Simulated scan of single mutants.
Amino acid sequence: MKLIQFSSQQKLPISIDKAWEFLTDANNLKLLTPPELDMVVQYGTERGMYPGQLIEYSIKPLPFYKTNWVTHITQVEEGKFFVDEQMYGPYATWHHKHFITEIEGGTLMEDLIHYRLPFGLLGKLGTPLVKKKLEEIFRFRESALIKHFGAFKEK
């Protein structure tokens, strides 16, 4: 199965420094994750973000299935971007790039995810459901960030 791409953008009414501080603190993942996924960060939040960092959490991607997910922070450029890759978890492949850019009135946050589902043909059949779930998760995240920082106002 080939890689599937998912992307998202959101403007935040905060400085790039504040955005970086918030987005690179793995303790904030729970705030940005829908409650039904029952995310619990288990390991890896003791220090700020750095290349080589491992973050382990449990997540419930389906009502009847809970799993551990371990992500590896492979790249970090302070105040600009970081990359996490799944070492173990629900995807066959997961590569997530997080970018932030200063814009007038705040910060533009961009996510670019490449993923592949497990289980061959069965995974391929589940692709539309996973895409829909990712869209729901990112809508929740957008709402949570607006609740936390306020809405971005275009000038």
Rank of each mutant, 00 (worst) to 15 (best):
M1K: 03
K2E: 10
I4V: 01
F6W: 09
F6Y: 12
S7G: 06
S8H: 12
Q10L: 01
K11I: 11
L12N: 03
P13L: 15
S15V: 13
D17S: 09
A19T: 10
W20K: 01
W20Y: 05
F22H: 07
T24P: 01
A26C: 10
A26M: 05
L29E: 09
L29F: 14
L31G: 00
T33Q: 06
P35W: 08
M39H: 04
M39D: 03
V40R: 03
V41R: 05
Y43W: 04
G44C: 13
E46W: 13
M49R: 05
P51C: 12
Q53T: 01
Q53H: 04
L54Y: 15
I55G: 01
I55T: 02
I55S: 00
I55H: 03
E56C: 02
Y57R: 03
I59P: 00
I59A: 00
K60D: 06
K60G: 02
K66G: 06
T67K: 13
T67W: 11
T67F: 09
V70N: 02
T71G: 06
T71V: 13
I73T: 11
Q75Y: 13
E77G: 08
E78N: 14
E78Y: 15
G79F: 04
K80A: 10
K80H: 14
F82G: 12
V83D: 01
V83M: 13
V83I: 07
E85T: 02
E85F: 13
Q86M: 13
Q86N: 08
M87T: 07
G89P: 02
P90K: 08
P90V: 04
Y91G: 00
A92M: 01
H95Y: 13
F99N: 04
I100G: 07
T101E: 15
E102H: 06
I103P: 01
I103K: 02
I103G: 00
I103W: 00
E104A: 07
G105E: 14
G105I: 15
L108K: 08
L108D: 05
L108V: 11
M109E: 09
L112M: 13
L112Q: 09
H114E: 15
H114K: 15
R116C: 02
P118H: 05
G120P: 12
G120C: 12
L121W: 05
L121Q: 01
G123V: 14
G123Y: 11
G123M: 15
G123R: 14
L125C: 03
L125V: 10
L125T: 05
G126Y: 01
K131H: 06
E135K: 10
E135Q: 14
E135H: 13
E136L: 06
E136W: 12
E136S: 08
I137Y: 11
F138L: 12
R139G: 00
R139K: 08
F140C: 03
E142S: 11
S143C: 06
A144Q: 13
I146T: 08
K147F: 07
K147M: 09
K147N: 03
H148K: 07
G150K: 10
G150L: 15
G150V: 14
A151G: 02
F152H: 12
K153T: 03
K153C: 02
E154D: 06
K155Y: 07
K155T: 11
K155S: 05
